[in-house]
Amino acid sequence: NKASVVANQLIPINTALTLIMMKAEVVTPMGIPAEEIPKLVGMQVNRAVPLGTTLMPDMVKNYE
């Protein structure tokens, strides 16, 4: 099973992601793959992301 990106803390709306906000975890359903973490740094979330939430592509602005 591949790990996904999971919020390590509450991430407020429009916050630019940093490494300490994210962790890799095997979850179902899968979200953004953990190997994308370096690419996510500096990208903004378009909603508040609660602690423990799996990051999905539609939660990150301009994620492709």
Rank of each mutant, 00 (worst) to 15 (best):
N1A: 14
N1M: 14
N1W: 14
N1V: 14
N1H: 09
N1I: 12
N1S: 13
K2R: 05
K2F: 15
K2S: 15
K2W: 15
A3L: 12
A3R: 03
A3F: 08
A3N: 04
S4I: 02
S4D: 00
S4E: 00
S4P: 00
S4A: 08
V5I: 13
V5D: 00
V6H: 06
V6E: 02
V6Y: 13
V6D: 00
V6G: 02
A7I: 05
A7V: 09
A7F: 01
A7W: 00
N8T: 14
N8E: 07
N8I: 08
N8R: 13
Q9G: 09
Q9F: 14
Q9N: 05
Q9Y: 14
Q9A: 08
Q9W: 14
L10G: 12
L10C: 11
I11F: 01
P12I: 13
P12T: 13
P12G: 06
I13A: 11
I13N: 12
I13C: 14
I13S: 09
N14F: 13
N14T: 06
N14D: 08
T15E: 09
T15K: 06
A16D: 02
A16Q: 05
A16C: 12
L17T: 01
L17D: 00
T18I: 03
T18E: 02
L19T: 03
L19P: 03
L19W: 12
L19N: 02
I20M: 13
I20K: 11
I20P: 05
M21I: 05
M21W: 04
M21R: 12
M21D: 02
K23E: 02
A24V: 07
A24L: 05
A24W: 13
A24R: 09
E25T: 11
E25I: 07
E25W: 14
E25G: 09
V26G: 03
V26T: 03
V26Y: 08
V26M: 13
V27W: 03
V27N: 06
V27L: 04
T28K: 03
T28R: 02
T28Q: 07
T28H: 07
T28G: 07
T28E: 15
P29L: 15
P29Q: 13
P29I: 06
P29A: 05
P29E: 09
M30T: 10
M30D: 15
M30L: 09
M30E: 14
M30V: 07
G31P: 00
G31A: 06
G31N: 01
G31D: 00
G31V: 03
I32L: 09
I32F: 03
I32E: 00
I32P: 00
I32S: 01
I32W: 02
I32A: 02
I32G: 00
I32Y: 03
P33T: 09
P33A: 09
P33C: 15
A34P: 09
A34Q: 06
A34W: 12
A34L: 03
E35A: 04
E35K: 06
E35H: 06
E35R: 03
E35S: 09
E36S: 09
E36T: 08
E36K: 11
E36V: 07
E36H: 03
E36A: 09
E36R: 14
I37L: 09
P38F: 13
P38W: 12
P38L: 06
P38S: 12
P38C: 11
K39N: 06
K39W: 08
K39R: 11
L40S: 01
L40W: 02
L40C: 06
V41K: 08
V41N: 03
G42E: 08
G42N: 08
G42F: 11
M43Q: 06
M43L: 09
M43A: 07
M43T: 05
M43W: 15
M43R: 12
Q44E: 09
Q44R: 13
Q44F: 14
Q44N: 06
V45W: 00
V45R: 01
N46F: 14
N46P: 03
N46L: 15
R47W: 07
R47I: 05
R47Q: 03
V49N: 01
V49L: 12
V49T: 07
V49Y: 02
V49P: 01
V49G: 01
P50R: 08
P50K: 11
P50W: 15
P50A: 07
L51R: 11
L51P: 06
L51N: 08
G52I: 01
G52D: 11
G52H: 10
T53H: 11
T53W: 15
T53A: 11
T53N: 08
T54N: 02
T54S: 08
T54G: 03
T54D: 00
T54Y: 03
T54F: 02
T54I: 04
T54R: 13
T54A: 07
L55D: 00
L55R: 01
L55Y: 01
L55E: 00
M56K: 10
M56D: 08
M56Y: 06
P57I: 13
P57S: 13
P57W: 15
P57Q: 09
P57T: 11
D58H: 10
D58Q: 10
D58V: 07
M59T: 08
M59R: 03
M59F: 12
M59E: 12
M59N: 10
V60Y: 02
V60D: 01
V60E: 00
V60I: 10
V60A: 01
K61H: 07
K61A: 09
K61G: 11
K61S: 12
N62I: 03
N62C: 15
N62Q: 09
Y63L: 04
Y63K: 02
Y63P: 02
E64P: 12
E64R: 11
E64S: 15
